[in-house]
């Protein structure tokens, strides 16, 4: 019984996260301005990471966790670089 509840919850959560992914992807594609796209991309990374974590719970393997850690790190660095680019027009001065 509780197994069914948990597996269905995981499925529903994954569907919701996929929808969230879609919302942010729309914002990345449609802008309207560069700063909107950058914020949306940051949250797109986060939604992808949460999806990986739910897959990890579903399959019971630690591998997804490593991927989530890398995605979180990359998201931070890339958004920082994008913000710098928006401010100055160059990443490295």
């Amino acid at each position: 019984m509780s197994l069914a509840v948990l597996s269905w919850s995981l499925l529903i959560a994954q569907v919701m996260l996929a929808l969230a992914f879609g919302c942010t992807a729309w914002r990345v594609l449609h802008g309207p301005r560069a700063q909107d796209r950058v914020v949306a991309l940051d949250i797109l990374y986060l939604n992808g990471m949460l999806l990986l974590l739910t897959f990890g719970i579903r399959t019971g393997t630690d591998l997804y966790f490593e991927a989530a850690l890398v995605v979180a790190l990359l998201g931070f660095v890339s958004t920082g670089a994008f913000a710098k680019f928006l401010m100055r027009g160059e990443v490295i001065e």
Binding site: L19, A20, I57
Partner: peptide, 21 residues
Amino acid sequence: LAAALVLAGAFLSLAGSFGLL
């Protein structure tokens, strides 16, 4: 408990992303 937490987390993420939209 884990099911409730996963659902709540996914719902809040969806709310945040929907707000972005």
